[in-house]
Design a protein around this nucleic acid. Structure first.
Lengths: 145, 145
DNA sequence: TCGCAGCAATTAACATGTTAAGGAAAAGCC
DNA sequence: GGCTTTTCCTTAACATGTTAATTGCTGCGA
């Protein structure tokens, strides 16, 4: 008795990709006017929420791989969105912080971003929205809750 | 009254990324032994399920952007995984089909892939698994059901 | 204090995501 | 037929995903 894979229209990985596409599309539209990418937006949001932190923690909270963050930090520093300072005690480590220019992008986009989020809550319903977040968290390998 | 964004730990886009990472990690491990990528696996699965089709339909069903598929088709053709033939009636269009070598990869990986899927069903529970797919479908912009 | 394991970060190499522009063929219009 | 528009596909350019190799620094034990 074979145990075939689900049809691609009922595949969990593909469903995750398509849902992500649907969610990110309006956010990308919003960000295109600011000149930053979706990933850079994520980094700025984490920095705005937690403040200055070391690169390792930043990568973890932003769900970015280290090599990606290294490249992004360079371009974001050139754009004046973040600053990087080396740890004096341990010269291997670096700290990243958001600049006023970076914070301004967050502040400027916050109203529209909130509207987008509200739209998805309305699409799914408040209850389903929370359920979805809970189910997604169960698939997160780094989630030890 | 401000309407702040949710904390990044409760953000839908980030939750989708992390869930996808959790789901794809074991699949990537499986595929690393075959030498194909996660996206190439997706293309092969769609071709194996529906058979020969034009590039536009293939891109749509694989959830890939056209430029990505153009590049992938070239490398996959060189690897002998697919064939490409131009439509005689409409010389703009191209058809893609899976080769026996491509089909062999599907067949070889199917048992392990089925185990991985079963693992996630067990993690979430059958009921939650179906609920999750339904909720994700509601976020899919191309889902007109 | 020397050597070495381990960690933080970078770099490299290749594949894909994303947007925009370009090219070629078909379809429609006059 | 000649013209424009549309459609399918490709190419280009830049950013990120992913894995592996490399560098610079810390700490630790012989």
């Amino acid at each position: 008795m074979t145990n075939p894979l689900p049809s691609t229209v009922r595949s969990l990985p593909i469903a995750l990709i398509r849902a992500r596409e649907g969610v990110m599309s309006p956010i990308r539209d919003m960000l295109s006017e600011t000149g930053i990418t979706e990933q850079q937006w994520r980094v700025l949001r984490v920095l705005a929420e937690y403040g200055r932190m070391d690169t390792k923690t930043l990568a973890d909270r932003s769900s970015l791989l280290f090599p990606s963050l290294t490249r992004m930090a360079a371009t974001m520093r050139e754009k004046g969105l973040v600053t990087q300072t080396r740890d004096v005690k341990d010269r291997r480590r670096q700290f990243v912080d958001i600049t006023p220019a970076g914070q301004k992008i967050i502040d400027d986009c916050l109203p529209e971003a909130a509207l987008i989020v509200a739209g998805f809550k309305e699409t799914l319903g408040e209850q389903n929205y929370e359920t979805l977040l809970d189910l997604l968290a169960m698939l997160d390998p780094g989630n030890h809750s």
